[in-house]
Every structure is written in structure tokens, then in C-alpha cells.
């Protein structure tokens, strides 16, 4: 499988999913007007990825400073997908990385964490520069 690499724009995050290392990053802001356009290819990639994945450890490092309400729904769908794969036996870890000065980012992370049962979902504070 090929790496999925999407460059950041002012309103969409940088996405780099690496099927060799099984370390995936999702970083930046997300407030596109049309979420399907950017995220549909991401979901298609993930579907294919999980279909061929064994039980090795997979890490998702997510660092999003801001997302709009429609991206919030996309993220929930994304975590629900990861949770479903965890239930099926995949070894998935999500690291929700937030800046200590950005209270909202921590709250957003907590609200996802509260809604997920089986998925390993860590909240990790980043050192301020």
C-alpha cells in the first residue's frame, strides 16, 4: 500500500498515514466547507489499510488545534471506525496531542475519549515552545 500524504492548507490538516511504519499523523486545523471532498479519500484509504493489517501496533498521532462542527462529525466517524477495528482485534492506539495553552483542544479530546469504550485513546500534553 502507498503512503497517504495530504499537504496542509489554511483550513485543512496535514495528513500522513504510513502503512510501513504504522505510525499515522493528522495535524493542523480542519474547517473546510465541504468535508466529504477532503475526507472521503482518507476513509477509503483506511478501509483498504485495515483490510490488509495484521495485529501489529498501530499509532495515530492526532494534533488538531481547531476543527469546525462538520469536521467534528468526521472525526467521530473516524474514531468510531478505529474503535470498530479495535473490537475486531486490531492493536490501535490514538494519541490526542494538545497544547497546554489551548484548553479547547483538551476539552475536545476529552469529549471524544468519553464517547469511546474499547479504543485506547490517550490525551497527551505537548510542551509549549
Amino acid at each position: 500500500m502507498d503512503i497517504l500524504k495530504i499537504e496542509a492548507t489554511k483550513h485543512t490538516p496535514e495528513i500522513c498515514f504510513d502503512p510501513e511504519k504504522n505510525i499515522h499523523t493528522f495535524q493542523g486545523q480542519s474547517y473546510p466547507e465541504n468535508t466529504a471532498e477532503i475526507y472521503n479519500p482518507v476513509f477509503s484509504w483506511l478501509k483498504e489499510y485495515f483490510a490488509q493489517l495484521g495485529n501489529q501496533e498501530v499509532i495515530f498521532n492526532i494534533e488538531i488545534i481547531y476543527f469546525n462542527s462538520s469536521s467534528s462529525k468526521v472525526l467521530m466517524d473516524f474514531f468510531d471506525m478505529l474503535e470498530e477495528e479495535s473490537v475486531k482485534g486490531k492493536n490501535i492506539i490514538v494519541n490526542w496531542i494538545y497544547d497546554e495553552e489551548n484548553e479547547s483542544a483538551l476539552e475536545y479530546g476529552e469529549e471524544f475519549q468519553e464517547d469511546l469504550e474499547s479504543l485506547k485513546f490517550n490525551l497527551i500534553e505537548k510542551e509549549s515552545d
Binding site: 468535508t35 469546525n68 462542527s69 462538520s70 467534528s72 462529525k73 468526521v74 467521530m76 468510531d80 469529549e111 468519553e114 464517547d115
Partner: peptide, 25 residues
């Protein structure tokens, strides 16, 4: 908060072009 979380897991209303979460947000 509760309403937001419920809506986030639901399919958006007919005619909605986003997630139907904007006003709650």
C-alpha cells in the same frame, strides 16, 4: 454537551449540508 454528542453520532437531518451541529456548537 449531551445534545451535541447525540447529534454527532446521528445522521444529519435531511437538507443539512454539514453535520447539523453548527448551532449547538
Amino acid at each position: 454537551k449531551k445534545h451535541y454528542k447525540e447529534q454527532r453520532r446521528k445522521d444529519p437531518d435531511e437538507g443539512s449540508k454539514g453535520a447539523g451541529l453548527g448551532f449547538i456548537e
